[in-house]
């Protein structure tokens, strides 16, 4: 019988869609019975929600975007000086 520590790792894998079907089914069954693991799942989901609301983490400067687009449209213009 697996305990909550074993399932803790699978909760993260489940959130990241890295579990196979049988593991996901096993986890789902455990979650129905275990309040602690349900709370862990919710806490992990909340962290992911907070992080994903902050996308993109940084926006590239407009000047860099413009420079790159110019270089893509005019590859021989020298708008991207090689360092």
């Amino acid at each position: 019988m697996r305990d909550c520590v074993d399932y803790r790792e699978n909760i993260l894998l489940h959130l990241d869609k890295e579990l196979c079907v049988s593991q996901a089914d096993e986890l789902r069954t455990h979650l129905e019975l275990c309040e602690n693991c349900r709370e862990t799942l919710e806490a992990e989901k909340e962290l992911s929600r907070v992080l994903r609301r902050s996308r993109p983490l940084y926006s590239a400067p407009a000047s860099l975007r413009d420079r790159l687009l110019r270089a893509m449209n005019e590859p021989d213009s020298g708008s991207l000086p090689r360092k």
Binding site: P56, L57, Y58, S59, A60, P61, L64, R65, R67, L68, L69, A71, M72, L80, R82, K83
Partner: peptide, 30 residues
């Protein structure tokens, strides 16, 4: 170009410096 913000964010977490991140992203596209 669709990966620009993602690449810039990656460069920022590696360098923690805007100027270095910009240089790194430019180097990537070069």
């Amino acid at each position: 170009i669709e990966y620009l913000d993602g690449l810039y964010s990656y460069a920022m977490v590696l360098t923690r410096n805007h100027a270095e991140a910009e240089d790194l992203v430019q180097e990537t596209y070069v």
